[in-house]
């Protein structure tokens, strides 16, 4: 479950990165159009919400919330490192 919650949070963070022109160009190679940017933000929010729900439902409210914040932080780190790695290849 630890991995599943992290993967969902990672999906959310990738969506947020995809909504930013600079990051989207780096990670996906294309810049998102306006409609897709909005969709990416909504998708990111939904996925992060789902990750929070997963954490709370498995570990209880307190520990679940702490676990969710940890997933979100490390998901954001993973996205940042992926973007950095992609930048170094260009």
């Amino acid at each position: 479950m630890m991995m599943a919650g992290f993967v969902v949070a990672l999906g959310g963070m990738f969506c947020f990165a995809a909504s930013q022109k600079k990051q989207a160009l780096l990670i996906f190679g294309t810049s998102p159009v306006h409609g897709w940017r909005r969709l990416a933000i909504i998708g990111g929010t939904v996925l992060l919400g789902l990750s929070a729900w997963l954490g709370v439902s498995v570990y209880g409210f307190g520990v679940g919330l702490v676990t969710f914040f940890a997933w979100a932080c490390f998901a954001a780190w993973t996205v940042a490192l992926t973007a950095s790695w992609q930048r170094s290849k260009k």
Partner: peptide, 10 residues
């Protein structure tokens, strides 16, 4: 927020 995921190495 703009630089949220930004890490420029070297």
């Amino acid at each position: 927020f703009t630089d949220f995921f930004t890490l420029r190495l070297r």
